[in-house]
Amino acid sequence: MGAYVARRLLLAAVAIFGVLVITFFLSHIVPGDPVAAILGPQAPEDVIEELRHRWGLDRPIPEQFLLYLRRLAQGDFGQSLATHRPVLQDLKEFFPATVELATASILVGVAAGLAVGILSAISRGSWLDHLVRFVSLIGLSMPVFWLGLIALLIFYYNLGWLPGPGQIDVYLLRPPWVTGLITVDALIARDFEVFRNALRHLVLPAFVLGSHAMVGIARITRASMLEVLGQEYIKTARAKGLPERIVILRHALKNALLPIITVIGIYYGSLLEGAVLTETVFAWPGLGRYATSAILSQDFAAIMGVTILIALIFSFANLAVDLAYAFLNPKIRYE
């Protein structure tokens, strides 16, 4: 097991290094001029030249890459051209918002997905099952950014049930920075108003972002519940006269969990993808927005930093899924 993990980590490291090389050269061969973009169309030429020189952008690309690697080895991610700050500091600031959103989304996805999946499994073939299936297919077919716009329009603008874009209402002050997650920090600071407010702000984006995960989880839940429900021991449990609730939740669900966990892991990773679009629509100060604007302004160091972080998360999510799998099912062995 330990050897397996070590091998996987090594492979992940190789993959990430490859990603690094590709991204670096991809972002540098474009003939754009990030310095000019950041300084605006009216900046004088000599100022632009000066800054290009100061950032080392006037050197050959392979040399820039080596320089970057050397700095990276020392834990220095470089400075963002756009924010003039160390990229690491930027990431520390923007990453928690995405973690918070992604976690809320996966919670929504898991809770609702499990519920809906179980529901349609036990009412298999009924109108409810078909309805759920059809509605979830429709949900899966809508572009997230469009869904987000429509949700804002209905629940925020027309009905006024939920707050609009952003993490908390503007007149509230953010609790002191401990973990970076607003909800957690609010609890630590015992500021329950901010906590409530931040939760309410999470609802819309979490539902929008979690919708695809919800559908995926619901489907896999339904499938594996159906499989498990057909097994002998469930029939035995029923025959023993156990209440249906206990049969379903305790016996069936427990055994159906394995494939469900795999899917959850996969979706947690792919939430990053949806985050790019959702964060744009909901003005969420997270990694997705940071990545988009970095690509838009060709902010090399920032692009590289985000790349490394995303690749890391993705690889670890995959590894975690496999390990959870092994943990839950001792039959699976690793050489």
């Binding site: 474009v30 003939p31 001029d33 990030p34 169309p41 009216q42 302004s297 060709q298």
Partner: peptide
């Protein structure tokens, strides 16, 4: 284009036509 790309091309005189803004400093 992204403004980084556009300004890069514009400054290098490699464009044919450009629509842009200018604000007085």
């Amino acid at each position: 284009l992204r403004s980084a790309d556009l300004l890069g091309i514009y400054r290098a005189q490699k464009h044919q036509m450009v629509i842009a803004r200018w604000g007085a400093d």
